[in-house]
Simulated scan of single mutants.
Amino acid sequence: MIDLSHAENQIRCVTNFKDLVSTPFNGEVNAICWTRKLTGDFSEIVDKIALSGNITEIEQEELRELRLSEQGQLAREILLNDLKLLKAHGASPVLNVINYYDRDNTYPFFPTDVYSFHVDRSPVPVDTFLCTYHGDSSEILPNSQGIKKVLIPEIRDELRKLYHGTDEGFDSFLSEHFFDLHYQAKPDARPVSLGLGHLWRLAVDHPESQVPPCIHRAPKEKSGKNRLLLIC
C-alpha cells in the first residue's frame, strides 16, 4: 500500500487504465495513481538484460526473446501490456534498466539532475507517466512541502553571480538553464514513495495546465538493486 496520509489532497487513486488517463487534474490534485499488486518475477528480467552503461533501454523485441521462467513470463506480459496501453493512448513509453543516473556537478550549490526534486515542463499539453517494477521507486513531494530553489535568497544570490545580463533577462536565464524547475523540501517535508507496480500520471508544467505541476525525483539507489522503470 502507498502511504498517502500526508498528501491525500494531491493524489487520486483509480483502479484501471481508462480512469488513469481520463480522470482530470483539478484543484490540488496533480497526481493520479492506478494502484496495482502485480504478479510475476521482474527481477528475473532485470538479471537477464545485457546492460550497456548506467541506463539500458529494453526494446520490445529483446524483451520477447528472453528465455524466462513462468513467473518471468507473467512479468513480461505485464510490461508488454503496459507499453501497449500507453502507446494506444498516444504516449511514447520507454522501458529502462537503471543502475544510476548521471549526477550534475556543474554548479555544486545547485544540481539539476533527476535526483533533485523537480517538475517537468512541456510547450504542449502532456502528462508524465511512470512505473517502477523493481528496485527503488521514485518520490513525490507535496507542493505545499516544497519551495522553488530560485526563490531562496542565498541560492538566488549565487545564481545572480553566474548571470551577466540585464535584470530584465534574469528570469529567462533561470528558465533556459532549467533552474526554475527545481525545488527544495521544507524541513518538515514528508515525500511520498510511489511504490512498486503502480502506474502513475503526473501533471506537467505546460501552457494549458489548470493545476500546479507535480514535484518528483528519482530515488537514490539505496537498495543496490537495478531499477526497472517505465517512463514517458
Rank of each mutant, 00 (worst) to 15 (best):
G169H: 07
L199C: 08
D127V: 11
P142H: 04
Y163K: 01
V150K: 08
K148W: 07
R190A: 12
G146K: 05
T132H: 03
F178G: 14
L181N: 14
D157P: 09
D188E: 15
D188Y: 15
S193N: 14
G169R: 05
Y133P: 04
D127P: 12
I140R: 02
L196Q: 08
V126L: 13
L159K: 04
S172D: 15
L202C: 05
L196C: 07
F129L: 01
P187M: 02
L181V: 05
Q145K: 04
A189L: 06
L202P: 05
L194V: 03
D180M: 02
H134K: 09
A189H: 10
Q184R: 13
T128K: 14
F170G: 00
G135I: 00
D157V: 13
R190H: 12
G146C: 08
T166F: 04
D180T: 01
K148P: 13
H177M: 03
H182Y: 12
R201K: 10
H164S: 10
K149Q: 13
Y133K: 07
I140E: 02
G169Y: 07
K161N: 10
Y133M: 07
A189G: 05
V124K: 15
A203N: 01
P191M: 01
A189Q: 09
P123K: 04
D180K: 03
L181A: 13
A189D: 10
H177G: 04
L181P: 06
F129K: 00
R160F: 08
L141C: 07
L194A: 02
G197D: 01
L199W: 02
P187C: 00
V124L: 15
P123Y: 00
H177C: 08
F170E: 04
A185W: 06
Q145A: 01
A189T: 04
S144R: 15
I140F: 05
R160K: 14
F178I: 13
L181I: 09
D127W: 06
H177Y: 01
I140P: 03
K149Y: 04
H182I: 06
R160T: 10
L194E: 08
T166N: 12
L196Y: 01
L181M: 10
G165K: 04
T128Y: 08
V126K: 14
V150T: 13
E158L: 15
D188G: 13
V124F: 13
F173Y: 12
T128D: 13
A189I: 00
V192I: 15
T132F: 02
